[in-house]
C-alpha cells in the first residue's frame, strides 16, 4: 500500500494548490463579481517570475515573495484598462491576455526556455530527506492553504469585504454610497492574482519543472468549475469543490487498469463529464453546493 499512500499525498498536494488557485478566483468572481477568464495567466506569471529570478541568483524565498507581488502587479496592469469594460468583454480580454502570456512563454526561449520549459532551480524544503519530501511539501501546501483561507476570511468579514460584496450585488448602489468601486475592484483582482501566483509557484516546486503547457486556458476553467461547484462566494465551498474535483480527476486517472478504455479516451470522457457538470449546474443549481441562493446573483 506504499504506492497508495504516496499517490494520496500527491493528490492532496494538487488539491491544495488548486484550492489556493481557486480561492483567488473566488475572491474576484464570488465576492466581487469580476469575470476573470484569464486566471491561469497569473498562475504562470508567478511561477515563471520566481523561477527566473532564482536562476538569476535571487535567493529562493525572496524570489517567491517577488513572484507573488509580480503576479499581483500584472493583475493590476490588466485590470486598469480592462475594468472599464462590460463583464463579458472583460472575460474575452482576460482569456486573450492569458493566451498572449502562454505564447510569450512558448516563444521567448531566451527568458522562459520556450516549449522545453525551465528546470534547475532551488526548491524550498530542500533540507528535508528525499523520502519525506512529499510529506513536507503537503504540509507546506496545506499550511499555505489554511493561511490564505484565514486571511481571506478576515478580509471578507472586514468593512473592505462588505464593500466588495456590495459591488457584486449592485455596483451603482456602492457608487451612490461614495465608494470608489473601480479601486476596490483593482484591489480585489490584485489580491486574487497574487494568490494565483502563489499557487503557480507551488505547482512549479511540486513538479520541480516549469512548462508553458501547464498554463492552458483549460486550467482557468478548472478553477471556475471548482468555484461554481462549491458555490460562488463561499470559500469553504471552494475548498470542498477543489477536493471533489481532484478526487474525480484522479479516480478517473486511476482506472485505465480496470476499464477497457485507453487513457486518451478516458481523458476525453473526463472532460465531457466536467463540461456536462458545468451545464447541469448552470441549469439547475447555479449557486453550487454551499452557495447562498439569496445572496448570490449570478448576473450583474
Amino acid at each position: 500500500m506504499a504506492i497508495g499512500i504516496s499517490y494520496i499525498i500527491s493528490l492532496l498536494i494538487l488539491f491544495g494548490i488548486y484550492a489556493i488557485f481557486a480561492l483567488g478566483l473566488n475572491l474576484e468572481w464570488g465576492f466581487t463579481g469580476i469575470l476573470n477568464f484569464g486566471h491561469v495567466a497569473f498562475f504562470g506569471i508567478g511561477a515563471y517570475s520566481t523561477v527566473i529570478l532564482n536562476q538569476m541568483g535571487v535567493p529562493i524565498y525572496i524570489a517567491i515573495v517577488a513572484g507573488i507581488i509580480i503576479a499581483g502587479l500584472f493583475g493590476v496592469l490588466v485590470a486598469l484598462p480592462a475594468m472599464r469594460l462590460r463583464g463579458d468583454y472583460f472575460a474575452i480580454v482576460t482569456i486573450g491576455f492569458s493566451e498572449i502570456v502562454r505564447y510569450f512563454m512558448l516563444n521567448e526561449e531566451w527568458l522562459t526556455g520556450g516549449p522545453l520549459g525551465l528546470r534547475d532551480f532551488d526548491i524550498p524544503l530542500s533540507f528535508v530527506p528525499s523520502q519525506y519530501y512529499n510529506i513536507a511539501m503537503l504540509i507546506l501546501v496545506l499550511a499555505l492553504l489554511a493561511l490564505t483561507y484565514l486571511i481571506l476570511k478576515a478580509l471578507i468579514n472586514s468593512p473592505w469585504g462588505r464593500v466588495l460584496k456590495s459591488i457584486r450585488e449592485d455596483e451603482d448602489v456602492s457608487k451612490a454610497l461614495g465608494k470608489n468601486v473601480f479601486r476596490y475592484k483593482i484591489q480585489s483582482i490584485a489580491l486574487g492574482s497574487a494568490i494565483a501566483g502563489l499557487a503557480g509557484i507551488l505547482l512549479a516546486f511540486n513538479h520541480k519543472y516549469l512548462n508553458p503547457n501547464y498554463y492552458m486556458p483549460l486550467i482557468t476553467f478548472y478553477a471556475w468549475i471548482i468555484v461554481i461547484l462549491g458555490g460562488s462566494g463561499n470559500n469553504k465551498g471552494t475548498i470542498l469543490g477543489a477536493l471533489i474535483f481532484w478526487t474525480f480527476m484522479s479516480l478517473t486517472r486511476f482506472s485505465p487498469g480496470y476499464l477497457p478504455i485507453s487513457s486518451t479516451d478516458l481523458g476525453a470522457l473526463r472532460m465531457v463529464i466536467i463540461g456536462l457538470l458545468l451545464i447541469v449546474l448552470m441549469m439547475y443549481k447555479p449557486e453550487g453546493l454551499l452557495g447562498n441562493k439569496e445572496e448570490l446573483k449570478l448576473d450583474i
Binding site: D88, W224, A268, M271, P286
Partner: peptide, 20 residues
C-alpha cells in the same frame, strides 16, 4: 438566465463537444 450564466454554460458545452 442572464448573459453570465449563458456564457459559463457555453464553456461547458464547448468542453463537451471538443472532448466528444
Amino acid at each position: 438566465a442572464g448573459s453570465i450564466t449563458l456564457l459559463i454554460t457555453a464553456i461547458g458545452l464547448a468542453l463537451v463537444i471538443r472532448n466528444l
